[in-house]
Design a binder for these strands. Sequence first.
DNA 1: CAAACGACCTGTATCGTTACAGTTTTAAGG
DNA 2: CCTTAAAACTGTAACGATACAGGTCGTTTG
Lengths: 341, 341
Amino acid sequence: MSEGQATALPAPNERPTLKTIAFMTGLGITTVSRALKDASDISAETKERVRLVARQIGYQPNRAGVRLRTGKTNVISLILSLEEEIMGLSSPMVIGISEILATTQYHLVVTPYRAQGNALDPVRYVLETGAADGVIISRTEPKDPRVALMMERNFPFVTHGRTEMGLAHPYHDFDNERFAYEAVRKLVERGRTRLVLLQPPPYLTFYLHMRAGFEKGIRDFGATALPFSQVNLDASLVDIRNAAEALLSGPDAPDGIVSGSGSGAVALVAALEASGRRLGHDIDLVSKESQMLLQWLRPEVVTMREDIRLAGRELAKAVIARIEGKPPAELQTLSYPIPIE
Amino acid sequence: MSEGQATALPAPNERPTLKTIAFMTGLGITTVSRALKDASDISAETKERVRLVARQIGYQPNRAGVRLRTGKTNVISLILSLEEEIMGLSSPMVIGISEILATTQYHLVVTPYRAQGNALDPVRYVLETGAADGVIISRTEPKDPRVALMMERNFPFVTHGRTEMGLAHPYHDFDNERFAYEAVRKLVERGRTRLVLLQPPPYLTFYLHMRAGFEKGIRDFGATALPFSQVNLDASLVDIRNAAEALLSGPDAPDGIVSGSGSGAVALVAALEASGRRLGHDIDLVSKESQMLLQWLRPEVVTMREDIRLAGRELAKAVIARIEGKPPAELQTLSYPIPIE
DNA sequence: CAAACGACCTGTATCGTTACAGTTTTAAGG
DNA sequence: CCTTAAAACTGTAACGATACAGGTCGTTTG
């Protein structure tokens, strides 16, 4: 048996490396590396032997070594906005992503950014430093500079939310158009005709979807849309409540409200109760929600669930598929509102 | 000017490395490295020059290079339990941690684990693969094997929650004893005397604290503690509601309840309203809460806030200080319940 | 004036992995 | 019997950074 490359005896108690396996099998380091990669120029018997030893001693490739040599980081970067945080969306999302990544070699790095204006910074950081193999972003805009940048650099990513740039990129989105449309249907079914929508901030893509669904519902089901754009879903609960109170005491008071988020609905409930109205009697409220608190504390609110954890899983699967070269157009999925009971 | 080590011309459009700076300044790679580290054997003028060039071209050290050579990962690993997830605690916690890490070179890697029984796995993974420089864990037990393991290996970590092992380790904790004590006080002030506690699972350390505070309050303020241990805070909302309904319709029905979490309180509210009781009239409920939803939807519930985002900040500061060698005993902090008017 | 010193700078080896360009061995082809 | 090829394996260099052990060159010291 000829001595391989592994000339020095590996330290006994250290973490095993390719060198350790090379020493134990009497093979060269290169051979071991290629055997573990199932390369075609290694005999089946050798591969088997190497795999056996590797498993026995619990070999795990050194991430820094791989990363330095190949540039592959085995990292997915989740770029979060603090606004999402406040809406409580990120938590189940992180779980969903982790559920998928746990079955792979990927680690999840979470990078939040402060204001909407800085959304591009963390993306640039990843691109410039090669900090990750793929990126997950959310709160997409119709013309999203982050998407433009990553497309241009051909960098794998997936968005939570769609864009309108005529570019095919991976996304997962909730069908907010359907949600708003069904919400109007439910309100009209309850006899409501003068409706308002507590909507997303206008620069986000899903504003357009939700708005479109709302207006289509208004037309199809024969109701009236009243204006309510002093506040949006990004406003604080206090601001939403105040704006809603003003609305409810004015001449254009609605008898039905659609809320684009559960926390928005909380503020609306406070406002309409303060105005002396009773939910389900004088007025109805349909809300999207991802946690399940409204259902428990105000079952009179009609809710439709958005499964954020599922979204996390879909997003993770999509980035990974993209990294592995699957065409973007095949990585676009929608999920639909889940009616409660 | 003599040629340094940087013999080959660095590629033009690539990410700058030490070699790039070495080439531009005419210095050796080693000198550049040491200059950026502010080593004592480099002249002030050279350091200045190197720093200037580095800043100009936007040099950022390659993490894989550093990690491979030095073992330093510049990663903090947050190890989460899915139970926390469900309680919605992890989201603001991630933000708090990130707020601190954003000012440093550290990245945050999030690793959840499934069941309580697997809590040790992710810790072992980090220790064995050197995946991080420091670890943050939560849901501590009085004798916590994760703490024992990391102490034994002298690995930097901080816990969210205390232990009772006679070992000084960094922690941040919420004063659950104080919370429960004050909760009992508030109930007695409202004339309630027959009290129950919706408590944490008994194997977690904060069970002991909350229990102790509750019982001390019972003694000090002269009330009666009734048993309620069919369910705990880890139970599903449905199970909590069912158990509470049974309790309320039995002979040992309480007139005051302390809930160790906001989501637990949601289930309790449902139960007591189903039993025909009115909050604030027939019965009172004091709850800890970290989101602010109870305050909005059931202001009759007396709440005391736990600031999870603050906890995240404290935890991040503590691990980093520990990594930098600060003694564990100096890295132990408590936060206190914040009364909501 | 030689030796010793201090201030500054630099080459080499190394961390673990993989791309690439061989080398060895055996068998087939002419 | 020599050439060629295929199969199986291996050494070297390199990714970027740093520890370490020198270098060089004035200046001080005996």
